[in-house]
């Protein structure tokens, strides 16, 4: 694998690991599979791009995160206050966000950032002449990931963070601790979607363009990374598990890069991620069914031998 390819793996791995960390919070902790992730990722990308074009690259980051919070809030309210199934709430918001995203890009499906100052171009200038020249994307995304992992670990060990984890684990217990599970679900989804928005924002600015489909399939790709990360560092404290999520994102990108080298066309990315997710989710079930299957097979075999006599 060439150096440039490896650099791309690291950059994409870092940026996407923020979405994986978002799902770590919503899917692994809160027990909600947030299907608005695709739309929210695009929302972060479009908001980040539009504000950068307007000349505020630094402001674009909190703005994208705030947009994510709003999206997460709507998803959470739909499922907690309106009685809509959590999967359906995500799909509804995801569909709505398509129009919202086009509206943010003033009716167009693309925003070009080629001549726009972004957080990456700002750092690129700073790094010129240092040994890190050319690594500006890695530096910015790396700082974002390190901060996110640290803050997320701190957050999940606060009383509120524990309550969020307990909500996904046993909502009855949360209620009997005088905590409203509706509240913890809303907070959890807002924080998770802020991270998804940040991820989208960094992706758009690092690619120097965004388009309406930038986030499509993101939820499956992130889930694949999450499941890989879970098998790597699934046991242990929150910090180790969060680090596992980042490693999972790297490993997924690495596997994908290797597959590309083996002449797999780029459009296969989503099929590969689907297969990984389906396999990873199905394996525990198949494993639990295996004794029944093997018993049945050996029984039939014995029967066949008997009848053969």
């Amino acid at each position: 694998m060439s150096f440039v390819e490896l650099q791309t793996v690291i950059e994409l791995g870092l940026i996407c690991s923020l979405t994986v960390l978002a799902l770590f919070l919503s899917y692994s902790m809160l027990g909600v599979c947030d299907l608005s992730t695709d739309g929210c990722f695009t929302l972060g990308a479009t908001v980040g791009a539009v504000i950068a074009v307007a000349g505020h690259p630094v402001l674009s980051i909190p703005a994208a995160m705030l947009a994510g919070v709003c999206s997460g809030f709507v998803t959470a309210v739909l499922q907690t206050k309106m009685g809509i199934n959590s999967l359906l709430a995500g799909i509804i918001v995801n569909t709505g966000l398509y129009s919202v995203n086009i509206a943010i890009m003033s009716g167009s499906a693309r925003v070009n950032l080629n001549k726009t100052g972004t957080v990456f171009t700002m750092v690129k200038g700073l790094l010129a002449g240092t040994p890190l020249e050319g690594w500006h994307v890695t530096v910015v995304a790396g700082v974002a990931v390190v901060l996110t992992v640290a803050l997320l670990t701190l957050f999940l060990n606060t009383r509120l963070g524990l309550a969020i984890r307990a909500t996904g684990n046993n909502p009855d217990m949360v209620r009997s601790s005088s905590i409203n599970p509706t509240f913890t679900t809303i907070v959890g989804l807002c924080v998770a979607n802020a991270l998804t928005g940040l991820s989208g924002c960094l992706m758009a600015q690092s690619q120097q363009s965004t388009e309406i489909n930038i986030g499509s399939g993101m939820v499956t790709i992130a889930l694949a990374s999450l499941l890989i990360g879970g098998t790597l560092l699934g046991r242990g404290g929150i910090f180790l598990r969060a680090v596992g999520m980042v490693l999972g994102a790297f490993l997924f990108r690495l596997v994908y890069a290797v597959a590309l080298r083996l002449d797999m066309p780029a459009f296969m990315l989503k099929l590969v991620s689907s297969v990984i997710v389906a396999l990873a989710l199905a394996l525990p079930y198949l494993k639990s069914q295996w004794p029944v299957i093997s018993r049945r097979l050996s029984y039939k075999k014995a029967l066949a031998v008997k009848e053969g006599k």
């Binding site: 524990l162 984890r165 307990a166 996904g168 684990n169 046993n170 217990m173």
Partner: peptide
């Protein structure tokens, strides 16, 4: 099982 969170 109902009174405590098993994963914590």
């Amino acid at each position: 099982m109902r009174g405590s969170a098993p994963g914590m």
